[in-house]
Design a protein around this nucleic acid. Structure first.
Length: 813
RNA sequence: GCCGAUGUGGUGGAAUUGGUAGACACGACGGACUCAAAAUCCGUUGGGAUUUCCCGUGAGGGUUCGAGUCCCUCCAUCGGCACCA
């Protein structure tokens, strides 16, 4: 009996295909599981990361099917995006052709892995039906104030007349023509994700049990909530006059209201409106102006690497409590994006302010003292207030509250929450994306396309050259009429960030959209299937994708499309696949091609190895020899089925010998472990090890019934991992009757005799063989005999019995 | 710098959550089969002593009858954030 994976795998894949074996049921009275692996970008070929991702998801889907659940296990394609355009430039292929051909190839690859995906729910995000609904969502968001336009800074290549993504900028130059890029302001569309910042943060408590802690921490830091005081700095009378009375002050934000008496200067971002006003109206001397212009020309993210720098701009503000005059500086470390783009500076209690004050010899005034020990500046921890008027003597925490209260009473400030999270810019000046469905009309301004005109589709007759935006240069595509007034108008040529598509695909799968075309997904389906019970994917999506998808879910809920607060109840982040210690990548030349692996050993070996080599969250080090080991195990499993008999009911044999008893015990331990692994721990490696142990023990005995029972259970337990061979064996021997829930025979797990360790002062000295749950006094007696040579003549202080595990005898001397 | 994770044989990794460290697998070594090789099967395999002893889970300390597991300090590696006021 020769194991021939190629033949078996082909047979079963065809069987599943013909029988539509993996379609979810429409019967909503059944218990459900929605198992989702992150969908792939159709780059051309699958890689080992995909194999790992989908092997994990498939194992869960198949397990729950065996347990009688209605399982939704879909796959799709994240098919818009830049690589398609790069391929178009390089190989003169149309992005659409390239993309859909890749999808066809990769679909075959996934099928050859024996993955149990639904066929009816598959789609690509570049399908116009998908775009149609996405455009509707975007319009509804606009109507609700969740989408708006503002100027954005982009990387611009003057030679190619195109916007470049950050990764296309190589050392400040264009990746294609090598000319220097510049920063250019142009309008872009933004989604107001910050309106949901609070909810995104608060709802993480719903995810605490189901998501890895580190992902939650990363999102928490990314959202970056801080509570503090926002107040207004009033400009001095002379300064107001200097600014032609166009400004009378500006807002600042601080989390350290307790240090307010320590303010010795204030600093504005180089892009602050007052600064820009002063530049435009020649209110600065030439040197100051040049210094600021230079600061502005440096990207905010590059400024972080620079030394602190600033310049006094000749105006002053009044301290709100002491009424002292405070000089106003422009400083390169103040971010225009955060808070109000201006800060109060307390050099004694803030590292940045301290460094800056030292450089420019600004006064340093300490107002907090440590509760104990000496004051060393800058002192940034909480402490006791000094030199702080009526607040002197208070502790920092108490003082913060009191000072905020005082500002609120005086009506000059209020408690405020600020977030690091920025609104989400979704504009891309590219061809291969979902068109943003807006129209520019000379009379009406920005107007959304009418819903009945959706989808706005891409023109096919374009040539992708890498220079300019093909939608912009297309002869006719842009031309349209205003949906509101009917005048000639132009279409928006920006397309959407591909993260928009991946933010709601989990909803699209819930409905058989080939049948129901008038909705993005049916509400009854959404209520039944959502949330996703198990979401599996790479840790690299910990922040952006997962945050956007969480936001989109909440937005769709508030727009009336969805019912859930959170899209993914449980999240499993799989580790990377490494070879020779580093991530598999083409550039490093350390890849292993899944197709070749399947060709050589079969899909079951690939799946078995990948789940056996490491627990899912950990990195997986590739090992060709260990792959062969996995193959050997499957060979043994296959050939040894000859030792079984054919039956359609599980044998329930009574073991006669110790070895038979042990073999049966290992089998049932494996069955017991399966439940825990598939539903809770996902430690497939330990389940496989347990199955190997069981088979090893079975091979030591010669009892057909026990052997057959073992196979009945082992093939059941391993089917989610190695479905082809398991189905083949189950078909040969059991007419597949062994699939489904199997009751655990508790008696098989019980031992007639157990081994207990005898330790003396915690050191193992002997083993004893006793009946389970033996009387404590008896155990101690036996243990003392076994360890006699260690305790004779010594004083026994204590005897500790851990039931069925060990006896510890504590002696003195 | 801040936050988080991880450190166990030659290697990947187990350890029922405080109770016999190293399951399972890879590799290595030895053997069987064979004219021979491959495949397969069977042993041995943490280190050191050589008779049943000592050492050992990144290092050091602590709690405990007992620590890979809990606490403290330190070291290393990886990941995230990085002037967020």
């Amino acid at each position: 009996m020769q194991y021939n994976p190629k033949e078996i795998e082909k047979k079963w894949q065809e069987f599943w295909d013909k029988n539509n074996s993996f379609e979810p049921s429409e019967d909503k009275t059944l218990p459900k599981k929605y198992i989702l692996s992150m969908f792939p970008y159709p780059s051309g070929r699958i890689h080992m990361g995909h194999v790992r991702n989908y092997s994990i998801g498939d194992a869960l889907a198949r397990y729950y099917r065996q347990m009688g659940y209605n399982v939704l296990h879909p796959i799709g394609w994240d098919s818009f995006g830049m690589p398609a355009e790069n391929a178009a430039i390089k190989h003169k292929l149309h992005p659409k052709k390239w993309t859909y051909e890749n999808i066809d190839y990769m679909r075959k690859e996934l099928k050859s892995l024996g993955l149990s995906f639904s066929k009816t729910r598959e789609f690509a995000t570049s399908d116009t039906e998908y775009t149609r609904w996405e455009q509707e969502f975007i319009i509804k968001m606009y109507e609700k104030g969740l989408l708006y336009q503002k100027n954005q800074t982009v990387n611009w290549c003057e030679t190619c007349h195109t916007v470049l993504a950050n990764e296309q900028v190589i050392e400040g130059c264009c990746w294609r023509c090598d000319n220097p890029i510049i920063q250019k302001e142009m309008p872009g569309y933004y989604i107001a994700i910050t309106k949901y910042a609070g909810e995104l943060l608060d709802d993480m408590k719903e995810l605490r049990d189901g998501w890895p802690k580190r992902v939650l921490t990363m999102q928490e830091n990314w959202i970056g909530r801080s509570l503090g005081l926002e107040f207004r700095f009033e400009l001095s009378q002379e300064s107001k006059e200097k600014l032609n009375n166009c400004f009378d002050g500006y807002e600042v934000f601080t989390t350290r209201a307790d240090t307010i008496y320590g303010v010795t200067y204030s600093a504005l971002a180089p892009e602050h409106e007052i600064v820009n006003y002063m530049i435009q109206n020649n209110l600065l001397d030439e040197q100051t102006k040049q210094t600021i212009l230079k600061m502005q020309s440096i990207l905010p993210r590059d400024r972080a690497a620079q030394e602190k720098e600033g310049v006094y701009i000749g105006i002053d503000v009044i301290h709100p409590l002491t009424k002292e005059k405070i000089p106003v500086w422009v400083a390169n470390f103040v971010l225009v994006e955060y808070g109000s783009g201006a800060v109060m500076a307390v050099p004694a209690h803030d590292e940045r302010d301290f460094e800056f004050a030292n450089k420019y010899n600004l006064p340093i005034k300490h107002v907090i003292e440590p509760p104990k020990g000496n004051l060393e500046l800058p002192y940034t921890n909480p402490g006791i207030l000094v030199n702080s008027g009526e607040f002197s003597g208070m502790k920092s925490e108490e003082a913060k509250k009191a000072i905020i209260k005082k500002f609120e009473e005086l009506g000059i400030g209020k408690e405020t929450v600020n977030y690091k999270l920025r609104d989400w810019g979704i504009s891309r000046q590219r061809y291969w994306g979902a068109p943003i469905p807006f129209i520019h009309c000379q009379n009406c301004g920005l107007v959304p396309e009418k819903i009945e005109n959706l989808p706005v589709t891409l023109p096919d007759d374009v040539e992708i050259t890498g220079s300019g935006n093909p939608l912009e240069t297309h002869p006719t595509w842009k031309k349209c009429v205003c949906p509101r007034c009917g005048a000639d108008a132009t279409r928006e040529t920006d397309t959407m960030d591909t993260f928009v598509q991946s933010s709601w695909y989990q909803f699209r799968y819930v409905t058989d959209f080939h049948k129901y075309k008038d909705v993005p997904f049916r509400s009854e389906d959404e209520k039944y299937w959502m949330s996703v019970d198990e979401y599996i994917g790479g840790i690299e999506h910990a922040i952006l994708h997962l945050l956007y998808a969480r936001f989109f879910t909440k937005a769709l809920r508030d727009l009336g499309y969805a019912s859930v607060n959170e899209p993914f109840k449980n999240l499993l982040t799989q580790g990377m696949v490494l070879k020779d210690g580093s991530k598999m990548s083409k550039s490093k030349g350390n890849t292993v091609d899944p197709d070749e692996l399947i060709e050589k050993y079969g899909a079951d070996t690939a799946r078995l190895f990948i789940l056996f080599a490491a627990p899912p969250e950990k990195e997986l080090e590739w090992n060709d020899k260990a792959v062969e080991g996995a193959f050997r195990f499957l060979n043994r499993l296959y050939t040894n089925q000859a030792k079984c008999k054919n039956t359609t009911t599980k044998p329930n044999p009574i073991p006669a010998s110790k070895a038979e008893k042990l073999a049966r015990k290992k089998v049932y331990e494996t069955l017991k472990k399966a439940d825990e692994v598939y539903t809770k721990t996902f430690a497939f490696n330990t389940l496989i090890a347990s199955a190997m142990e069981a088979l090893n023990e079975l091979n030591k005995i010669d009892n057909e019934d026990i052997y057959t029972e073992g196979y009945w259970i082992i093939t059941n337990v391993l089917e989610p991992i190695v479905p082809h061979i398991a189905n083949e064996i189950a078909d040969n021997l059991f007419n597949q009757e062994n699939f489904g829930k199997i009751e655990i025979d508790e008696s098989a797990l019980k031992d007639d005799e157990i081994t207990m360790a005898v330790t003396v002062n915690g050191k193992k000295r002997a083993e004893i063989h006793v009946a389970p749950n033996e009387d404590k006094d008896k155990l101690i007696e036996v243990a003392k005999q076994a360890a006699a040579r260690y305790i004779d003549g010594k004083t026994i202080i204590k005897e500790i019995v851990v039931p069925n595990k060990l006896i510890n005898i504590v002696i003195k001397g």
